[in-house]
Design a protein around this nucleic acid. Structure first.
Lengths: 180, 180
DNA sequence: TAGAACGTACAGAAAAAACTGTACGTAATT
DNA sequence: AATTACGTACAGTTTTTTCTGTACGTTCTA
């Protein structure tokens, strides 16, 4: 094995590992591999060069890179004289991490919260209505408690994501280890 | 629509929303629905009752509940006089949240770190070897920088997960909002 | 203005994941 | 000891997701 192969092998090991564990962030292995490729490639890449490197179809590259763009992990760059669209990845992983949370989680949190709020008021109606049977009221009360608890939890989660977005989390967990 | 149906509808809306957004945690919609059912059911449930409620096969219930157990979201409980295995869900969502991170992320982090460490030493060998061409050395140096950066990031991520496990995160982001 | 280069929509193929039913081992009941 | 109840391994089916190739609209080039 020559030096170039050694280099390649060291690089690929990391890309592969990265790609495999990116599903924790809800990212496909293939898309993770593309991100890894972009991470190690210093020049912005075109869809064709991605295709050649990964041995996949250009269509896949197009849709994959689009997804990475939506997650703010990759951006299109303009390079003088090139007709092709060129892409490069964000090298700030802390930013990428917090962006991912913001983008993906906010939606889920607010969807759940509005479902809960809707149900809370329905249950409250049931409780306020004198004709409702005792049995039903008991159940409604129990559900109401659980939903209020959930609402508090989502509020907490929102505040956690706030701290990511505002970078305050880095006051609490600093980026660099204290020197020993 | 009678009161019982109203109750059911309010409950199902929340279960459905919960289930749909649980894929953010890497959890299937069906499994999320099962968790939601368990959340609202106060008595521990058997596989058969889950099956009846969700209209799915008993096999699915068995494997789903196993997954929830692995994620510490559900536990088996012993009830006197029952031959069936009975399960109930954890009602502490903060705990569930932090457990999920610990369980899922730790594995990924350490996998990535060990891949990186292995590659770092290979690249270092390449750099230490006088016969290596300048071209290769340049590339190795660039990769090395990136890998060291990644290592720092994973260290940060580990410390974040530490703060979840140790509950210190709740000092920074308190569970209950400050009263206004 | 003709032609080439480029990116993507869309339909279909391939692969992966989720789900089911049967079969079987174990443990409780009679 | 025979029977019943229970949970799960496993193979096969269904559903979903991922991936590809063709076709087409747009933009640049000559």
């Amino acid at each position: 094995m020559n030096d170039s192969e050694k280099l390649q092998r060291a690089r690929n090991r990391c890309i592969e590992s990265l790609a495999q564990n990116m599903n924790l962030y809800g990212i496909t292995e293939s898309i993770g591999r593309l991100y890894g490729l972009l991470y190690f490639t210093d020049e912005p890449m075109s869809l064709d060069s991605m295709k050649d490197e990964l041995g996949m179809s250009k269509t896949s590259m197009s849709t994959s890179v689009r997804q990475l763009q939506d997650l703010q992990m990759v951006e299109k760059v303009w390079v003088k004289g090139s007709r092709k669209d060129l892409y490069q990845c964000s090298h700030d992983w802390y930013q990428t991490f917090t962006d991912l949370f913001s983008i993906k989680w906010r939606v889920g949190i607010s969807a759940n919260m509005s479902a809960i709020n809707k149900s809370i008021s329905e249950l409250q109606e049931l409780l306020d209505e004198p004709k409702t049977s005792t049995q039903i009221k008991e159940e409604a009360k129990a559900d109401l408690e659980k939903l209020k608890y959930a609402l508090n939890y989502y509020d907490w989660l929102n505040r956690l994501v706030d701290s990511f977005e505002s970078r305050e989390i880095f006051n609490f967990i600093p980026k660099v280890k204290d020197t020993p």
